[in-house]
């Protein structure tokens, strides 16, 4: 494990904690896209099928359990918690997630390393994770005032993806590897989706004004 990978995982963990903090303590999910959260729950459920078949490390298993548990509980909170669900912007969060799920599944069925159930599911999760943030970005664009926690959540998620790219570059030069360009392309696409958000995030930070994305 290199420093970029660890920093990436910690940023990812921090993003989840920020979101849980907002939902659990403020009892609000305003500005949070349920569609994106459902997609993440599906991403982890399909990617971590190996949790029961392969053991990598205690760290790996614990982190997988955290990401599975947190993503499903966030979805549960937004859908069912008696107070939290009232703050959900249902009318704004209109992105149809099957428009992302179906193409990702088709792509995974045709473009993968091995045609096995686990491998296709793993590839599907990579493709889906790459685009899962889109409903959240669309929702942010529609939200006039983005609160600090929601802004930080998206920023941390973007930082996590960026750090993973540094991790791959580092591993490329230091470890034996075979080509897995699928991971590279999905990861780069995912990071690029945040470029626009990062630009406005830093602008608002520099000018000390509230974050707002242009429509």
């Amino acid at each position: 494990m290199n420093i970029f990978r660890l920093a990436g995982d910690m940023t990812h963990l921090a993003s989840v904690l920020v979101l849980l903090l907002k939902i659990h303590t403020i009892k609000s999910c305003a500005g949070v896209s349920l569609k994106t959260q459902e997609l993440y729950a599906l991403v982890f459920a399909t990617r971590y099928l190996d949790i029961v078949t392969d053991f990598i490390s205690v760290y790996n298993t614990v982190m997988k359990l955290i990401f599975l548990g947190s993503s499903f509980s966030i979805v549960w909170y937004i859908r069912h918690h008696r107070v939290v669900r009232r703050s959900y912007d249902k009318d704004q969060d209109t992105f149809r997630h099957y428009l992302l799920m179906i193409p990702c599944m088709l792509l995974a069925l045709f473009v993968h390393e091995k045609f096995t159930f686990k491998e296709v599911m793993w590839t599907f999760s990579l493709y889906l994770e790459a685009v899962a943030i889109l409903p959240q970005l669309v929702l942010l664009q529609r939200t006039r005032n983005i609160d600090n926690l929601t802004g930080q959540y998206v920023f941390l998620l973007g930082a996590y993806r960026g750090l993973y790219i540094f991790n791959w570059i580092y591993r490329y030069f230091t470890e034996p590897h075979f080509v897995h360009w699928i991971t590279w392309i999905a990861g780069v696409v995912q990071t690029l989706l945040y470029a626009d958000f990062f630009y406005y995030y830093f602008e608002s930070w520099k000018n000390n004004v509230r974050l707002q994305l242009p429509a």
Partner: peptide, 10 residues
């Protein structure tokens, strides 16, 4: 064989 294939990542 201990090739890096990304499966040890999260």
């Amino acid at each position: 064989r201990n090739f890096y294939n990304g499966k040890d990542e999260l």
